[in-house]
Design a protein around this nucleic acid. Sequence first.
DNA 1: ATCTGACTAACGAACGGTCGTTCGTGTACT
DNA 2: AGTACACGAACGACCGTTCGTTAGTCAGAT
Lengths: 203, 203
Amino acid sequence: MTREALRPGRREEILKAAGELFGTRGYHATGMRELAQALELRGSSLYAHIEGKEELLWAIVDRAATAFTAAADEVPNDLPPAGRLERLIAAHLNVIFSQLDHAAVFFQDWVHLSTERRREMIARRDAYQQRFRRAIEDGVADGSFQVDDPRVATLVVLSALNFSYQWYDPAGPLDPDQLARAYARTLLEGLRSRHLGATGGKE
Amino acid sequence: MTREALRPGRREEILKAAGELFGTRGYHATGMRELAQALELRGSSLYAHIEGKEELLWAIVDRAATAFTAAADEVPNDLPPAGRLERLIAAHLNVIFSQLDHAAVFFQDWVHLSTERRREMIARRDAYQQRFRRAIEDGVADGSFQVDDPRVATLVVLSALNFSYQWYDPAGPLDPDQLARAYARTLLEGLRSRHLGATGGKE
DNA sequence: ATCTGACTAACGAACGGTCGTTCGTGTACT
DNA sequence: AGTACACGAACGACCGTTCGTTAGTCAGAT
């Protein structure tokens, strides 16, 4: 085999392949030899570049988490709540759509991290959720939103966003930006009823 | 060991334990000996009651899928769209909340089924989604809903619902029915803006 | 009342295979 | 000469599963 690349470049290739395999087959369903084969290597050769399988998982999950946080950091905190939430939603979806494999690993396989790393991820996830909740709470305070419980509303929004990695198809007919906009709109305006009723609840 | 139970009861116990383990640790991360240990058995003993590991997974996933369909069947198709969708949402959440383990397996591990069984699940899932989409489309037609794209709206709603298995805590402070109602309301009315604007789009 | 034979279900041992990983070696490049 | 990197072989552990055996239970015959 010809000597083909410098060290850091190779590591990046491994991470990319691992992201694809973990994302589609799942972490525990992917073997190291299988990963090596995707890179035309022999399994044992991987260990010149990485520490082990879990470090690989951690690198991917950490990268995804950082991407989410970085994208949300681009949204100014002093924006009016509705516009702020819209930007947060767009940023979130953009990360998922543009790094689908890593997002899949992030949502599916973070539980398989070691206890300590899992704890760290939970903390970072909670801090991230706070931004959404704060935007919603601010929106309720200034009258642009009207929800029963901001915590539940936060869960609704983030659940709707997070599950998208399961069905989003980059090869599909819809442009991701367009899709994200439609998605965000539906979420923001919701299924807007004519006046108020329409639900079975006693008003 | 004392002879303790009749045959069908034992199988049910195994399914229950498998649901809990697959749901929390994941299908591939759970060993048959580990499952046996949870039942105070020895691994090899399991095979008097089941065909194999995948049959176990299939039984759980199939049961969950059937529960979803059965719950949706209880909702009359001739209800007005908004009320119908509300009932569909409540039914869906009720299945998730009342069978959290099986729901987790259903959403996480169905991909690990054999090709044929996976195909079947996809077909059933699509048929199920149709009910939600039809309710939304009907609601758009009769003016009670107003969305850009019914297909996207369907994905938003079902994503928001499905992801709930990740955060719902049966031991938490919130009553499941109450939570489901708040959740459904937020979804139905959405984050209702005062008039129309509030988003960044040129309206 | 006791014996008998069929049956259920749990067992220990072992199967071939795969897992993640280590190590010593070879080789092409700098 | 030194180094970066891929290799084959092998490690111990665990995987899902099979198999022959044993212990306990029950029905019916004696």
